[in-house]
Design a binder for these strands. Structure first.
Lengths: 149, 149
DNA sequence: TTAAGTGCAAATATTTTGCTGTCAC
DNA sequence: GTGACAGCAAAATATTTGCACTTAA
């Protein structure tokens, strides 16, 4: 397999169709925006990018499609420590959960994967008898550049 | 010392005063609500409880006081996986960070402290050269009771 | 005394809902 | 053909801001 499962282009579309959901013109457009995003986008940014591909897309449809993807566990919702208002950001669900670090000074978002995080999740499942469906680990602080500045 | 630092009654008030902030009747009331809360409260719940102690408190003052406590690192803001809408919940900053587990079925919130979490934070600080100011680890899933039901 | 804080009203931001018409299957 | 979906308008929810009045220090 040339790409990891979640990075195959059209993966989201294939997942939704395999669940018997209808693939509309609008959904295809929104999914492609989410799939090709290089940063964490909020609903308004997704709407703007989707409209560049197809002007006939309503804001509500973006919200409904994001809700759909969320409910099916295909994307994760982030707050990024509410660095800029109360909006939510979205990313394709990764194979491996990661930490989101938000610099409180420059606003930069960094991601970090860690065995300790994987082990912590295992510990939670075992010790708390809690079946984890989704995780969100965000830390706010100061990045390397901003610490020394 | 009879109580851990953050649980001393009046701790929040003492902290704010030591930082040269004015202690108004309204602030005292709101601080006491936050300090004595037994569960995670949102702004509206805090307002309601504060008004039982003193009817002359405005919703805006609650928001401003919560913002103040947040900026001074005296309380933490939680989303609790947005289980009920987009409101935020607040808790006194604990001595030791913990995981918040939110059951997606029954809505129960559980807290869990873990050495692995402490170690993960240490790893982030070292490996990413990131100085952590605040953390938020929330996991959504199914609690023991709901898994077996 | 006076700068910080409060209350009120209004604004802003984000997301959701009701309903009618449209389109994927 | 029909039930799922989209668009539009409006509502709901949560929070913030401007400004005149009040009060802690």
């Amino acid at each position: 397999m040339p790409f990891p499962e979640t990075e195959v282009p059209g993966h989201l579309q294939a997942e939704l169709m395999s669940r018997g959901l209808r693939m509309t013109r609008q959904r295809r457009t929104i999914l492609s925006v989410v799939e090709t995003a290089k940063t964490h986008l909020d609903a308004s940014q997704i709407l703007r990018k989707a409209r560049k591909l197809d002007a006939r897309i309503d804001r509500v449809t973006v919200y409904r499609t994001l809700g759909l993807l969320k409910r099916h566990g295909l994307i994760d919702e982030l707050d990024l420590m509410h660095l800029q208002g109360e909006k939510h950001y979205y990313e394709r669900r990764p194979q491996r959960d990661h930490v989101h670090m938000a610099c409180l000074r420059c606003g930069k978002i960094t991601e970090f994967e860690s065995d300790l995080f994987d082990r912590l999740k295992g510990q939670i499942e075992r010790d708390c008898h809690f079946h984890i469906a989704v995780t969100r680990l965000e830390v706010g602080g100061y990045c390397k550049g901003c610490r020394s500045a």
